[in-house]
Every structure is written in structure tokens, then in C-alpha cells.
């Protein structure tokens, strides 16, 4: 069976002794879902959102600092961008395993790995956005007497924001998906009920429900961020 690294907690038999649907491992046992929404699925969903939100926030912060540096000093762009690319190429399970000896079976391990994956998309999009600011707008800004800082906050940053927000969307959706693997390390997030389901004779209802929630969460985040991007960049639709 699949090894569950974080399987240190008590394994609750999700099959239960309930309905015939559960006994027969049916595809979609609503009575099981009703019974275990509160103690299994809902907490997993909340944990999943937390895992993703922390990773995205940390990734966004780190990528912002790196992107401003890489944009201002082009020499930095090659090593920084290259390192972000490299992190992104490491298979996620391998990265989790690599980190465990250093940071243990902790949430920190998960967040380090998830954050690393966001850097590639966020950094690349931020730098591309800043570089894509039209030259004529920059010349006009300089000629009109905007200082460097004013030019950055009033012209460069807003004009880079569609690319930045597009990167944020991609990073968020992919992190929602990757975060299910976090259950290898800690029993948290929507990966946990999936692993338990796999472990218990492939209990289909639990695997489908948790997987489905991960998909819905990714879609919801995608739609919400798309809507947010539209709202804050009304000019990009003009």
C-alpha cells in the first residue's frame, strides 16, 4: 500500500459499520458523507486552505523582493530565475523527503516545499510584468518629473499588475493541487482523507469526496482571483 509518512495518528476506520452502501464500498455514500463532513472533510478543507494561503502569502512576499531586485539589477535575474526554475523541477514527493531530515514531519516542511513551488511562476510573471511596461510611458513619466519611486508605484507597478495577478492565479491553483501531497508529511489538508481512503481498501466515497473538494477549491480560487484581477485592473478591459 501507499506509505503514509504522517500516519502516526490513530487511524479511524472510516468505513464504519453504517449503511449497506458503506459496507459495499459504494461510489457515493451520502450517509457517510453526512456523518463525517464535520469530523473529517470540513476540517481537512480548512487545513488545506490554511496550507495554501500561507504558502502563497510567503511565496508572494519572497518573489516580490526577488523580482524587484532582479528587475533593477539584471545581473541577478539569471541566478535568481534559474534557482526558482530548478526548485520547480524537483518532484514534489522528492522535495518533501529531502526536507524531512532537516525540518522533520512538520507543517514547516510542507510550507517550505509549497512556497518553493510558487516562486517560479510568481517571480517569472512579476519580472515579465515589470519589463513589459511600455517604454513611452516610462519616458513620459521621467519627462514629466516623476521621481524613481513615484514612477515605480504609479506607473510600473500598476502596469505590471495584470501579469502579477495572472501568476498569482496559476500559483494558487497549482498549490491547491500540490498541497494534497502534504499528507505524506503531516496529517493535514485534503490529502489526508484521500490517503486514509486509499489505505482502507480504497474506500471510494472518501477518496472521491476529498478529491472533489480539492478540485472545487482550485476552481473557486481561480474564479475569485480572476474576478479580483478584473476588478483592480479595469483599464485592461478597455
Amino acid at each position: 500500500m501507499i506509505p503514509v509518512l504522517g500516519g502516526s495518528g490513530p487511524v479511524i476506520p472510516s468505513f464504519g459499520s453504517g449503511s449497506s452502501c458503506e459496507q459495499n464500498n459504494g461510489w457515493w455514500c451520502t450517509d457517510w458523507l453526512r456523518e463525517h463532513w464535520g469530523d473529517t472533510l470540513q476540517p481537512a478543507l480548512v487545513q488545506h486552505i490554511e496550507l495554501v494561503a500561507i504558502a502563497i502569502a510567503a511565496g508572494f512576499l519572497i518573489a516580490s523582493v526577488l523580482a524587484i531586485a532582479g528587475f533593477r539589477y539584471r545581473l541577478l535575474d539569471v541566478p535568481v530565475g534559474g534557482f526558482a526554475d530548478f526548485l520547480y523541477t524537483i518532484p514534489s514527493i522528492a522535495l518533501f523527503q529531502l526536507l524531512v531530515p532537516f525540518t522533520g514531519l512538520t507543517v514547516l516542511t510542507v510550507e517550505i516545499a509549497l512556497t518553493s513551488y510558487t516562486l517560479f511562476v510568481l517571480y517569472r510573471n512579476m519580472v515579465a510584468g515589470l519589463r513589459g511596461v511600455p517604454e513611452d510611458a516610462l519616458e513620459a513619466a521621467r519627462g514629466m518629473g516623476l521621481t524613481r519611486v513615484q514612477t515605480f508605484f504609479r506607473v510600473e507597478l500598476p502596469l505590471a499588475s495584470p501579469a502579477v495577478l495572472a501568476g498569482l492565479r496559476i500559483a494558487t491553483v497549482s498549490t491547491v493541487s500540490i498541497a494534497t501531497v502534504a499528507a505524506f508529511v503531516v496529517p493535514k489538508g485534503l490529502g489526508e482523507p484521500i490517503f486514509i481512503g486509499l489505505d482502507q481498501n480504497l474506500f471510494k466515497t472518501e477518496i472521491l469526496a476529498a478529491g472533489g473538494l480539492a478540485i472545487l477549491l482550485a476552481l473557486a480560487a481561480d474564479v475569485a482571483l480572476a474576478w479580483f484581477a478584473r476588478a483592480v485592473t479595469p483599464w485592461s478591459r478597455a
Binding site: 511600455p134 513620459a140 514629466m144 516623476l146 521621481t147 506607473v155 502596469l159 483599464w235
Partner: peptide, 28 residues
């Protein structure tokens, strides 16, 4: 910066800020 703000500057590609309305551009 004071010098530049006191001189009107018009260029061929215009250089309007695409994320600002006409009013915000004029009000820069």
C-alpha cells in the same frame, strides 16, 4: 524634478499611462 514639472513635454508615442483614465493622465 522641479525643472521637468515646470516644462510641458509631448512625445511622438504620446506616452499616456494606459492604466489611468484621461482625467488621471491629465492630472498627473
Amino acid at each position: 524634478t522641479e525643472l521637468r514639472r515646470s516644462i510641458g513635454y509631448v512625445i511622438q508615442q504620446v506616452g499616456l499611462f494606459p492604466h489611468m483614465t484621461v482625467e488621471a493622465n491629465i492630472g498627473t
